Computed example of a mutant assay.
Amino acid sequence: MTEAAFEALRAFVAERDWSQFHTPENLAKSISIEAAELLEVFQWGGEVDDAHLREELADVLTYCFLLADKIGADPQQLVLDKLEQTRAKYPADIVRGRSEKYDQL
Results as ranks from 00 to 15, higher is better:
50 D>K: 15
8 A>S: 12
54 R>L: 13
15 E>A: 05
56 E>R: 00
60 V>D: 06
23 T>W: 06
16 R>G: 08
90 Y>C: 07
69 D>M: 04
50 D>E: 15
44 W>S: 05
1 M>G: 02
84 E>P: 01
7 E>Y: 06
105 L>C: 03
37 E>C: 13
35 A>F: 15
78 L>K: 04
8 A>R: 15
24 P>Y: 02
4 A>Q: 14
85 Q>H: 02
13 V>W: 00
46 G>M: 08
95 V>N: 12
73 A>T: 04
21 F>D: 04
25 E>L: 15
22 H>T: 05
103 D>M: 00
51 A>G: 01
16 R>V: 11
67 L>K: 10
15 E>H: 02
39 L>R: 14
103 D>Q: 01
46 G>P: 06
46 G>F: 10
87 R>E: 06
16 R>L: 10
94 I>W: 08
24 P>S: 01
8 A>C: 08
96 R>P: 03
14 A>P: 07
85 Q>R: 07
98 R>S: 01
82 K>E: 14
40 E>Q: 13
49 D>G: 04
34 E>N: 14
85 Q>N: 02
83 L>D: 04
89 K>E: 12
48 V>W: 00
25 E>M: 13
54 R>N: 09
36 A>F: 12
27 L>T: 07
83 L>P: 00
81 D>N: 12
3 E>C: 08
28 A>R: 14
24 P>C: 02
103 D>I: 01
34 E>I: 14
63 Y>I: 03
84 E>W: 04
97 G>C: 00
64 C>I: 09
30 S>Q: 11
11 A>N: 07
81 D>K: 12
99 S>D: 07
10 R>C: 09
73 A>G: 02
1 M>N: 01
94 I>A: 09
